[in-house]
Design a protein around this nucleic acid. Structure first.
Lengths: 349, 349
DNA sequence: GTGAAAGCGCTAACAT
DNA sequence: ATGTTAGCGCTTTCAC
């Protein structure tokens, strides 16, 4: 039995005063009722609620926030929505914030530092209760804004570098090293790398650095590489795999910078009747759930996305409750390696 | 040469007054400079800009919006982010809004009417310049709020029903009919349907209704159906396909309510050596780009997602510029059928 | 070209 | 349990 407003299309937006007049209760008490604050008699409460519902009153948070200097918004700044990684981080964030007064507000940077700076400026101008922002690399101006904002800042996804305030993520260098070690342990020797042509994806870069570093310690280097940008990742993965194998036919392992192109590579190999993981081993990065269901399970490394979102939100929420609590948390999660069906488990001795 | 604030961690957030005092210019003029309004001498402008930069001042939009009663936010309310459909709609929206002062703010409902109502209420309380909301089905309270908000409202994705204000989308009933016609024209007779167990996904429901309606006109009905919820869509698509074909082995066509489960079905059929589209034809819905690269191209229907986002944003933007312009736009886009490799083209003649 | 005064719609802090 | 008074940090409006 939802009440429909009696006023059809009010020219002037309704204010507390309108509810006050309609109910014959002071603005202050109306405000109290609407926020469940302080003691209000049941009779008064009823009157107010009824009036508000009949008018179709929606409180004005702009005015409320200005008066109380409290804003229940958490700015979440991420590079992309189409990556599937970030929606998962959002899932973790929402999961935690849903139990609080706080609300996430998303801004997207498209991996561009200048966009990040602009989005951050815009969001900070709404005086949010906290900021969750992807990565540790920001322009000087962005760092300055974050440092001066006077609110909790959590940098997520990455822990290789120094945080402004708190940070939650994995070490992508370590993830790269770990994967390299698993590949070497399995006895692969001639390793190709396939990734995105994105100098500004610092996390992919760090994984690559960790990867080559461990290979170098074993006296190896990446035997060939191939990059792409844009387009359907699955299709690109196929193409790139075909290209790199044509150019360097004796590669025995292909390391992909994400699971989607890895899956494309896997499909290509299966098409061509290549023995995976015997003739060529494959691995990606991210553990994306919807790839379950492919003919084989791609070896991958879980980036702990949902958990990162949860932890970041927890930090913001707890600081919002007790401002002086906890300083400079730094949570580094351990990415787990999934061998799937495309990476041999043979120990090197 | 980005300037870094001189004050390291100000306890009290900076205000216009701080900039005013630091620059020796009145608050009013500082405000003018920061908003590029009115005539200000170059000398004054320089002074102000320098002071603002050195302090690291970020304007307070809460106060600004309250004073000007203008908010450059557009509320975008969608059921899910993990669907890949909605990120694409967002792409279209951002594309248009990037050229304006307007900023999208996303709220997610998880297909729950009560969440939609809550999210809408929350968003309206920020007095946005417009609302873009998925679907035509809302609770009475939500409809009342939308009707009374006094701002442009664009309902997107669906045109089967009546809009509150403006609407942009496709007719899902028509899409279902169109697909059914193509399947019948190709000569398939024993048709199975596979979809989500989601009574609240009205668009999937309408497609199904249109689909069965056209089958009925040809004296046919859906021979078997199978539903799922949760989990990896690709894997679920495989499972469901196996199940339905085991139960009803003589099905000659499988219509999936989305491309992801359709792709799973395709992979299953290829695995089992089923001749597609000879023995069994397959079709999905949505034309999701990243499925390019599968062994075969799944027949599908494009839901015009990016274009829907663009049109919706255009309506909001144009109304924001000239409030009294254009009433009740209703844009119905035509979904295009892609036969791919899994639906025969044979005309029944 | 610049400034002073008066709110925007709420809520904190006191009354009562 | 309810009402009154002052702002919150800006922008609008009107002076100069």
């Amino acid at each position: 039995m939802t009440q429909v407003p009696i006023q059809p299309l009010p020219k002037r937006p309704l204010t507390l005063r309108d509810v006050s007049e309609a109910s014959g209760v002071s603005e202050m008490t109306v405000s109290r009722v609407l926020r469940n604050r302080g003691d209000v008699s049941d009779a008064t409460r009823e009157k107010v609620l009824t009036a508000a519902r009949e008018l179709g009153y929606v409180p004005n948070k702009i005015a409320g926030s200005l008066a109380s200097s409290r804003v229940n918004l958490v700015a979440v700044i991420i590079p992309s929505l189409s990556n599937m990684v970030f929606p998962e981080v959002m899932t973790g964030i929402s999961e935690i914030l849903d139990d609080t007064e706080l609300q996430p507000v998303v801004g997207v940077t498209h991996y561009k530092p200048e966009r990040e700076e602009a989005v951050l400026y815009e969001m900070l101008s709404w005086r949010p209760s906290g900021v969750i922002i992807a990565g540790l690399e920001h322009t000087d101006a962005a760092k300055a804004m974050l440092g001066a904002a006077g609110i909790p800042i959590v940098e997520i996804m990455d822990t290789d570098g120094s945080a402004i305030d708190a940070a939650v993520g994995i070490s992508h260098r370590r993830a790269g090293r770990k994967m390299a070690k698993a590949i070497l342990d399995a006895g692969y020797k001639k390793i190709g790398f396939l990734g995105t042509k994105m100098p500004l994806d610092h996390r992919a870069r760090k994984r690559f650095e960790g990867f080559t570093e461990t290979l170098a310690k074993a006296g190896l280097e990446v035997a060939d590489q191939e990059f792409y940008s844009g387009g359907s990742a699955l299709a690109k993965g196929r193409e790139m795999t075909e290209t790199i194998l044509a150019r360097t036919p004796d590669l025995d392992f292909l390391y992909y910078s994400n699971d989607m192109i890895g899956a494309g590579g896997l499909l290509h190999c299966l098409d061509k009747g290549i023995d995976v993981p015997g003739e060529v081993g494959l691995a990606g990065f991210n553990g994306i759930e919807f790839l379950d269901g492919l003919p084989r399970q791609l070896a991958t490394m879980d980036a702990c996305r949902v958990e990162i979102g949860r932890e970041a939100a927890r930090i913001i929420a707890s600081r919002a409750e007790s401002p002086e609590t906890g300083g400079k948390e730094l949570i580094s999660l351990e990415p787990s390696l999934d061998f799937g069906d495309t990476l041999k488990r043979l120990k090197k001795l």
